[in-house]
């Protein structure tokens, strides 16, 4: 198809419908217009490909999301309710174990009904021990126990699950800050990774989530879950743009194995509805 500038509207629609939000859409289209003026492509497909290039160039992937710093390395799973923290903790534990590391899980969600049982089932599946206490226990104490256990057993990695919490609830964000501090006191430099788990169906609220979690605990990476549905997870792009938080992993299902490292090219192609190159 012949390119004409009226097709910018279609591109805008594609980007908005992938949840990129006004700011990201504007800055992407600004760059695209610049590129189109420079290279004057004739066909719509060429412009789409330019758009792909622009978007990929704006994303930076984590060099190695599997990297372990700290002995033991302490990872914290954080995010709003129901995004996939517990599931991802289980997937990560299994993945790291398969990569030859010794791993332990910590059930620091002591609030939600049967949250510990859920993580313990993931622990069984992954073949990884789970530190837990009774419902209602102090989550910071569970996190502390987990770090202790990881150190005492000389393990490589502890993955600590936390309760889902809405970022606009100050007391819950303070509680999370406390968990991170307690962990840091016990093991200098910890938590070494704080994974903010974002559900791909999330709209523009994801930006505010990232902002506030970033402030409360130093978020080091995003896990974008539920990309196996029809949602494109464009808000992760917007978050990356606004806050410069890299995306480390994506969740693509409910099974142990449904976790992939983030691939900017594949992510952008999915947003634009483009085929993977052969």
């Amino acid at each position: 198809r012949q390119w004409s500038d009226s097709l910018y509207d279609d591109l805008e629609e594609i980007l908005y419908e992938a949840d990129l939000g006004a700011q990201a859409v504007e800055s992407i289209l600004d760059q695209l217009r610049q590129r189109v003026r420079e290279s004057r492509p004739e066909r719509a497909e060429d412009v789409l490909d330019l758009l792909r290039q622009v978007m990929v160039s704006m994303l930076e992937s984590m060099p190695n999301p599997y990297e372990l710093t700290g002995t033991p390395a302490i990872w914290l799973m954080v995010g709003v309710n129901g995004t996939g923290k517990t599931t991802t903790a289980g997937k990560l534990a299994e993945r790291m174990k398969r990569r030859g590391h010794s791993v332990i899980l910590g059930a620091a969600d002591t609030f939600r009904a049967a949250a510990a049982e859920q993580l313990m089932e993931w622990g069984r599946r992954a073949g990884v021990d789970v530190v837990h206490q009774v419902e209602g226990a102090d989550p910071a104490a569970v996190a502390f126990d987990t770090v202790r256990a990881a150190s005492a057993r000389k393990l490589d990695l502890a993955v600590i699950d936390t309760a889902g919490r809405l970022h606009n609830k100050a007391h819950l964000m303070q509680e999370l800050g406390k968990i991170a501090r307690v962990v840091g006191r016990e093991c200098p430099g910890a938590p070494h990774q704080v994974w903010l788990v974002i559900d791909a169906t999330t709209g523009q609220n994801g930006l505010e989530q990232a902002r506030v979690f970033q402030e409360a605990v130093n978020v080091t990476g995003i896990v974008l879950t539920k990309l196996d549905g029809t949602a494109k997870g464009g808000v992760a792009f917007a978050i990356h743009q606004a806050l410069n938080i890299p995306i480390g992993f994506v969740g693509v299902g409910e099974k142990l194995d449904d976790l992939m490292t983030f691939d900017p090219e594949g992510y952008v192609r999915a947003i634009l509805g483009m085929e993977e190159p052969h």
Binding site: V80, G82, T202, G203
Partner: peptide, 12 residues
């Protein structure tokens, strides 16, 4: 439906 849902809500 989660109130945080974005554009996908319609499709779902």
């Amino acid at each position: 439906v989660d109130a945080m849902t974005g554009q996908d809500a319609v499709r779902v």
